[in-house]
Nucleic acid binder design. Structure first.
Lengths: 351, 351
DNA sequence: CCAGAATGGTTAAGCGCTTTCCGAAAAGAT
DNA sequence: ATCTTTTCGGAAAGCGCTTAACCATTCTGG
């Protein structure tokens, strides 16, 4: 008799209906409250009844319906991660670390790609609010920061990843972009480069990296030529196009600082297509230290972000904010690291 | 008076409480049933009341709680995508297409990385069942297919992506791996290669590609040397290691078929580290046509999968299965395409 | 031996929605 | 003018769970 399955589990077509907490309670001859308590390890339940209930749970293969529990607890244990594009390696790598950390903390993640598109941003944000996610992580590249401020004011927990905003105070974790830009350009300058171009994205973090570029050139008495600075969006093609344009100049740059590795790869392709050799004729430095930077020939010199640490930190910060909404907001800046590989060298000598 | 916000929306600390359907109903002086009907466009509601209700919804900035509606409708409009690793470009690219298609169909996606690890697979699957996802997409690389069979028998919709299984009948969409392997090896053979190595993953799809290799060599009267075949898992390092080993032989292969682009990139690195030039000394062909294959020097010849079409097809199939569970299962095979770039050439001539 | 404190378990309300069933009113048919 | 439909909207049950409040034991110490 022990393993008999009772009638309510068999339907017309032989379809199995999922057991509910009521079924478990009935089988174990206790109330649903008791079952709930053993599942959640709350209240005080004696050892015998706990075992009894657990046995029934096993036998019926009962899985609590967390939709129902989310409704009562007003908490879904679900986070939303909003990024521009999961197929961009930078975001997929960091997403992976965020997923792992979230999962470790018992949370599940919706990952949504918004393509730098305000309409998609709005649609996803509304949808995810409807889905009652417990908090949002907004990654760099989010366009309509105003949207975020909106629900920030409604006390919905948000943290910003590699993205800052001055009009409202958010929790943010980021790499120190200024410092990263500094490291990159300083590397080029100390190799002897004077004519350094920049290909940067049109996002805030790139702007900070660009500030470092200007300041550093200034500190070294190197004149800044605006036509050496191109802003675009991250893609290999765009990097290539930008570099082609930069190499078109009468006096062409001997080095280029690409604000991320994708653009750097494009730059290398452009150089190659013009018959230039990297790093002999052109030094290239990237940013992010993505897997890409080790697959190029020559391998790419770049600036690494500690994305695993950043990922874990941002989940921690978000969870803290969910639990204690009134805590003061904080910014955490991680320090980047220069990774010297093969794509940078001294500038060619002209007599 | 029009924009007055009523008391229940202001709490002690100035915190706003989300309005519920009751608040809308009260404000609009209708029943909650009516509000529900205008939101879902069900039942029959006169134009004036519909407008009235919508106006209140606007004013209160009401967003339906889909957790509650999921509980009553027993449907979460959420899908689970289980892959080995989102930071692997192949999976992040295909995930992106799946996300887009799912979103277009009104569904949200949980993307979960299981690292070829049975324990993680089990944990995620159980969690997601608890979260009441409407269906699963299981991508290639899933280890414990037995787990899947289990809930397949519980009538939980599952479709397999680029993964087949013979013991149970699932809906599957995949590329025609055998044909893809055929295209790749045939390309090498017709360039004149006789000594062709293979680096393959330990997954079913790679096995099929390997079958094509064997059959094709057989058809061309080329003897198959088992020591030319290495099986490993996908990573640049593993590709490199495998290639190094293959190049250690007395008579070394003149070409290698890597079962995916990641391994191919590793193979190219190995060749380069031994001072060999691709394709002059070694032809390399990959599989998948990932973005990686255009960033290498030389660019990688590979076999492309129509991943966008596959992604769209698989969510269509899954949705169909969710709606009509009793339909017969089907396999959809997409045909791959050879993309010739720079990494393959005729074998070196020896006199 | 009994008041008071633990301990172990139950009852019942309620989370925010969907949906069936029903009744009233309006519209059409005779 | 009366009867039948149709249209519109409401009442209420219920989805599967959590939790506050409560009650019944058993345990403790004076």
């Amino acid at each position: 008799m022990v393993h008999m399955c009772f009638v309510s589990f068999i339907m017309g077509e032989g379809e199995r209906i999922k057991p509910t907490i009521y079924d478990v309670a009935k089988e174990a001859k206790v109330s649903i409250a008791t079952v709930s308590k053993v599942i959640n390890k709350t209240g005080s339940i004696s050892d015998p009844t706990r075992k009894k209930v657990n046995k029934v749970i096993q036998r019926l293969n009962y899985k609590p319906n967390v939709v129902a529990s989310a409704l009562t607890k007003k908490q879904t244990d679900t986070l939303a991660l909003i990024i521009p594009d999961i197929s961009n390696v930078f975001f997929s790598e960091i997403s992976r670390f965020i997923e792992d950390k979230a999962h470790e903390m018992g949370l599940t993640l919706f990952i949504c790609s918004t393509d730098y598109n305000e309409e998609k941003e709005r649609r996803y944000i509304e949808l995810l609010q409807s889905k009652q996610v417990d908090g949002f992580i907004i990654a760099s590249g989010f366009q309509n920061i105003h949207l975020v401020e909106e629900f920030h004011q409604n006390n919905i927990p948000v943290t910003l990843l590699a993205q800052d905003n001055l009009t409202e105070s958010f929790n943010v974790v980021s790499v120190d972009d200024y410092r990263g830009g500094f490291l990159a350009v300083n590397h080029l300058v100390s190799l002897g480069h004077q004519n350094i171009a920049v290909i940067a994205e049109r996002v805030h973090s790139s702007t900070l990296r660009l500030h470092a570029y200007r300041d550093l050139l200034g500190m070294n008495g190197i004149p800044i030529k605006e036509e050496n600075i191109i802003r675009t969006t991250a893609s290999i093609q765009n990097g290539e196009k930008a570099m082609l344009e930069l190499l078109q100049k009468e006096i062409r740059p001997t080095a280029v600082f690409a604000a991320n590795d994708i653009l750097a790869v494009g730059a290398m392709k452009a150089a190659r297509s013009l018959g230039l050799e990297v790093p002999r004729d052109l030094s290239v430095i990237g940013f992010d230290n993505m897997i890409l930077s080790t697959t190029t020939v020559p391998e790419l010199t770049t600036v690494a972000q500690p994305i695993k640490d950043m990922a874990e930190k941002i989940v921690d910060v978000l969870i803290r904010q969910i639990k204690m909404p009134d805590l003061a907001k904080e910014r955490t800046l991680f320090v980047p690291e220069l990774i010297v590989r093969e794509s940078t060298a001294q500038p060619p000598k002209f007599e």
